[in-house]
């Protein structure tokens, strides 16, 4: 209850500051799920750290931020409009599928995850709605809810994920909540888009992420989907935008 009040308060501040009509509030509120936290085994353990990391409880958006939601954000924050955004904060493909600054256009599904957004933009959005980007550890912990247990099932799940990762770009990204929910009750961890994380740029351990060296120090050598995400994140810059990269937000429990 206290939490709800806090959100309302923060959002209220944001709205009043930008004179946003009240009916937009509903669109902006993405349902969050409390993830109890637990032990997460990173693909690469931190220097001197233990193999597993303890993750504190946190709230996690059930779905990714949509075009409709992001439109409200750029309306309220002119500096994040396509024509206004600084090249330092987003490369030239920022929101490139949108027809205009404030008109996504007929080809863009309002209920699809917004893509072609930079880390800076995603970070600013989450702040604006009183949240933050999830960490890699949090994101990976939630994504483990998509895995069945048992080594055989893990291989099968890996094959399915690699199949999705290998597939070409779709003409249009499907709507949110179209790929089913995992055991945490969270939608679309796989099958729609890749997602920004807060600490994506810390991925490159020792600056050596190449070839055989990439497997030295890794905790699970057969988790190729995790390596794929690792490779993907480590080649991003905070200003990068890609047609299959969006985000969702998280928030501390306390």
């Amino acid at each position: 209850m206290k939490r709800m009040f806090l959100i309302a308060f923060v959002l209220g501040l944001a709205f009043s500051a930008n004179q946003l009509p009240a009916q937009n509030k509903k669109i902006l509120e993405t349902k969050m799920i409390l993830i109890k936290g637990g032990y997460y085994t990173p693909l690469y353990k931190k220097k001197g750290g233990s193999k597993s990391e303890c993750i504190k409880p946190f709230y996690f958006d059930v779905h990714a931020v949509t075009n409709e939601q992001f439109l409200k954000f750029v309306k309220a924050n002119p500096e994040w409009r396509r024509s206004k955004v600084s090249r330092i904060f987003a490369d030239r493909n920022y929101l490139k599928d949108w027809r205009d600054d404030l008109i996504p256009g007929d080809k863009v599904n309002p209920l699809s995850p917004v893509v072609n957004v930079s880390w800076f933009a995603a970070n600013a959005y989450c702040k604006w709605v009183g949240k933050r980007l999830p960490t890699v550890a949090e994101w990976e912990l939630v994504s483990s809810g998509n895995f069945l247990t048992g080594s055989k099932s893990v291989i099968n799940t890996n094959d399915k994920l690699i199949k999705w990762y290998s597939r070409g770009l779709p003409d249009q990204v499907n709507s949110i909540m179209s790929t089913g929910r995992n055991k945490y009750g969270v939608y679309d961890m796989f099958g729609l888009i890749r997602e920004w994380t807060y600490d994506f740029s810390n991925m490159n351990i020792n600056g050596v992420a190449i070839c055989g060296a990439g497997s030295s120090g890794a905790t699970d050598l057969t988790n190729y989907p995790a390596f794929l995400r690792y490779g993907f994140r480590s080649s991003l810059k905070a200003s990068s935008t890609l047609p299959n990269l969006g985000f969702r937000c998280a928030r501390d429990f306390n």
Binding site: Y165, S166, R167, G168, L169, G207, V208, A209, I210, C211, L228, G231, F232, S235, P243, N244
Partner: peptide, 22 residues
């Protein structure tokens, strides 16, 4: 632009870390 992930190249003809990978 239609790729879904980053790619790189390691040429065995290169003298240098990663053969150019990074």
């Amino acid at each position: 632009p239609t790729s879904t992930m980053p790619h790189s190249i390691d040429l065995h003809a290169v003298l240098g870390p990663g053969g150019g990978a990074l």
